[in-house]
């Protein structure tokens, strides 16, 4: 397994590193405990809704830094609608691919960008805060990547059941007991669902 030359280029000389003074939108996703965290600041033209300035910071591995660099490059100069539509596979392709085990870095970078845009939209009355529902849990599970193949666990049909009742989210995942990534998948699910204050407890069965 090795990084593409483009990943290494963006890692060694990343674009748009830093913070912005008085950003219009800001988001920080991931956590140091999980080994990766990304922050994105954006400045958006109020009339055109074009992202005029964008900066990122990353605590993470080489691919985490490279995806932060590429996602900010891709979003710069785009309208917020265009930028929201950048997908994690597209970002990975822009880097000439990522090893499957590193695909979650692209998901994290895209998620952070979308949340920075959301932050801007909320502050400017362009969107309303999402109302929590079971569907949002499923959407969040689409961000959990099975590292063996670099696809999300929902697309891979590994998620057999999603339930939510009285603050308890119940997730049933089909993954063998000997799977190297079993603990990682469980940790990733918990980390992704932590952001919902409505969820008091996550019960994962495997």
């Amino acid at each position: 397994m090795q990084y593409s030359q483009k990943v290494l280029d963006h890692f060694m000389k990343p674009h748009n590193v830093g913070k912005l003074k008085n950003p219009d939108g800001q988001a920080t996703e991931g956590s140091p405990a999980c080994g990766d965290q990304v922050s994105i600041d954006i400045i958006v033209n109020e009339k055109t809704h074009i992202i005029e300035e964008i900066k990122f910071q990353s605590y993470g591995c080489a691919s985490n830094i490279a995806t932060g660099s590429i996602i900010t490059e891709m979003a710069k100069g785009k309208t917020i609608e265009e930028a929201k539509n950048i997908g994690w596979k597209e970002a990975a392709e822009e880097l000439d691919g990522l090893p499957p085990v590193k695909m979650h870095c692209s998901v994290l970078a895209v998620d952070t960008l979308r949340n920075a845009i959301k932050d801007y939209e909320l502050k400017h009355g362009l969107a309303e805060a999402d109302k929590f529902s079971k569907e949002m849990i499923v959407e969040e599970l689409k961000k959990v990547i099975y590292p063996q193949v670099g696809e999300d666990i929902v697309s891979l049909k590994m998620v057999k059941y999603v339930g939510f009742e009285n603050g308890v989210a119940i997730i049933d995942v089909d993954i063998p007991s000997f799977d190297t990534y079993r603990d990682n998948v469980a940790e990733e699910i918990e980390e992704h669902l932590e952001k919902f204050p409505e969820i008091k407890e996550v019960k994962i069965t495997m």
């Binding site: 990084y3 290494l8 890692f11 060694m12 080994g35 993470g60 591995c61 080489a62 985490n64 830094i65």
Partner: peptide, 8 residues
């Protein structure tokens, strides 16, 4: 993070 240090 250590992987970034090792790759660099």
């Amino acid at each position: 993070e250590g992987e970034a240090i090792t790759v660099m």
